[in-house]
Amino acid sequence: MNKPAQQKGLSMIELLIALAISSFLILGITQIYIDNKQNYLFQQAQSENQENGRFTLMLLEQQLSKVGYRRRPDIDIEESFGAINGAGCSFLKGQVINSVDATTICIRYQPRDPEEANCTGNGLSDIEKSTISNAYTIPNQPLSYIERFSLVIDDDKNQLTCTAAIVSGTLVSDPVTGVLVEGISDIRYEFGVDTDANDDQKADEFIPNPSPLVNTQRILSVRYSALVHSQKNVSQGMGSQAFAKWYEHEATPPAEPSTGRLYQISGSTLTLRNLMP
Rank of each mutant, 00 (worst) to 15 (best):
K3F: 06
A5K: 14
K8D: 12
L15W: 09
T30K: 14
Y33E: 00
Y33T: 12
N36R: 15
N39C: 00
L41H: 10
L41K: 15
A45R: 01
L59N: 14
L60C: 10
E61D: 15
A83G: 05
D101G: 05
T103A: 09
D113W: 13
E115K: 15
L124R: 10
E128A: 12
S130L: 05
I132A: 01
A135L: 08
T137Q: 08
T137C: 00
S144K: 02
F149D: 02
S150A: 07
S150Q: 13
D155I: 07
A165W: 07
T170I: 04
D174T: 11
G178E: 03
G178Y: 01
Y189V: 11
T195W: 15
T195G: 00
E205T: 04
V214T: 14
T216H: 05
L220Y: 09
R223D: 09
A226K: 05
A226C: 06
V228Y: 13
S230I: 12
N233D: 14
Q236D: 00
G237Q: 05
M238C: 01
A244H: 12
E256V: 05
S258C: 02
T259V: 06
G260I: 04
R261I: 00
Y263Q: 03
G267D: 00
L270V: 12
L270H: 11
L272M: 12
R273I: 04
M276H: 15
